[in-house]
Design a protein around this nucleic acid. Structure first.
Lengths: 225, 225
DNA sequence: CGGACAATTCGGCGGCCGCCTAACTGACGC
DNA sequence: GCGTCAGTTAGGCGGCCGCCGAATTGTCCG
């Protein structure tokens, strides 16, 4: 039992419980949840969820904000979100049998377009990244980078990119359903909020799925989705 | 506690034990180990390691081959190897304090060049991937792909790529020390075995680290490492 | 102030899990 | 055939871990 192994195990352990994993998956929507909401979701008592949250916050996976008598908790940052989506994507997919019509359409909507923490994912997200690559707006030759053309394109669209210390402008994130990278990072987040603000996409209540109204076309890129 | 969460937790649980994590990390060298070897490495009894191996094999992370009175076990495939390296890479790095001169040089050798399952990693692996990108041998515009130029280059080098069903020719793998992608997949594996065969790199006993003798230059690419 | 409500602390219960030793199975090789 | 050696099975021990209900703290609001 090596020190290295112990460290890896420590991280894995945080997700190695059904309740905690459910919480983390729910938090992938990027919102901050209260302890009680999560307790209800995970179907455990409030004391139980409280302990789990202590563990996850202590481990650095989640961050908490206390407001009055509420404890809001969210994923620490885009990197931890990507860690979770990445692991879920890597785990071999059991072909899930949808057992009702509504389940089918729900799953399809999820695969078509959704948010992944704070950026766009699903077929839409991947198509957007592809289109941007094709147009030379992002460049993959050295990691991944925004080209000058990309910068101009963003300005032209009127997208404000919020630069935060320590967060890369662009970053690739493995898509759970497509198994191919889509665009994350500050630019990915800015594009997502811009699209929501412009009404190009809108949230479908009760999940991370998005309704698409034009979308990629609206970005001024050719590919359809 | 959702079904989705339970599934994610199940995978995490396989790595959520120090002994099992140590085993998986050791297996990253791509070799097949016997149960006793692993028991010694992880400092547990043989019955204990036997149970752990049952669990990991049952979970699909490892594959076993029985030969006489030996049970050889190895990572199921490149994908599972990449899953483990990926998770280890994502976990925030505690700046490890090397407590001896030999530990420093060992760590540096590991960072400079090593194998990652069956392909090249470390500064060398990343530099190789960069150089190949720069020369247009691989293309990142749609996922990652080998270009016709890349194919010609391989043939010219005399590298035989073993095509196996279900394994992509090229694939990116997140480097643990560099935090940037290097080249995996069938081509990555072929380049690694070719380099070993030609003596461009050679194993340093007692680990995954490699001794570099020319290396990137030998591949006929310009960048130094 | 006092009731309602979010969250936590405490104590305790049950179960699973990792580990061991001892005994057994089965392959190898003289 | 018989010792040796790899691996497994069986049995059992100890501890940790997830969960709960009851009681407590702390905040909000009428």
């Amino acid at each position: 039992m090596s020190a290295e192994g112990e460290e890896l195990a420590g991280w894995a352990r945080m997700l190695a419980d059904g309740t905690r994993a459910t919480v983390c998956l729910a938090l992938l929507d990027g919102r901050a949840w209260t302890a009680t909401e999560l307790a209800k979701l995970a179907k455990v008592s409030r004391p139980t969820i409280s302990e789990h949250l202590n563990l996850l916050v202590g481990g650095g996976l989640l961050t908490e904000v206390r407001q009055g008598r509420h404890r809001y908790v969210k994923l620490t940052g885009p990197d931890t979100a990507e860690l979770i989506e990445g692991l879920a994507a890597l785990a071999p997919r059991r072909t899930e049998v949808a057992n009702s019509l509504s389940a089918v359409s729900k799953r399809d909507a999820f695969a078509r377009a959704r948010t992944c923490y704070d950026h766009l994912a699903g077929k839409l997200g991947v198509a957007l990244a592809d289109a941007m690559t094709e147009r030379g707006l992002i460049d993959w030759s050295d990691g991944i980078a925004l080209t000058p053309e990309g910068q101009a394109w963003l300005e032209n669209l009127g997208v404000k990119v919020e630069v935060r210390r320590g967060r890369p402008a662009v970053r690739s994130c493995l898509d759970v359903t497509e198994r191919r990278p889509h665009l994350a990072g500050a630019v990915g987040a800015a594009l997502c909020s811009h699209a929501l603000q412009q009404g190009w996409v809108s949230h479908i209540p009760g999940g991370r799925a998005l309704k698409v109204n034009g979308a990629v076309q609206a970005f001024g890129l050719s590919s359809g989705v």
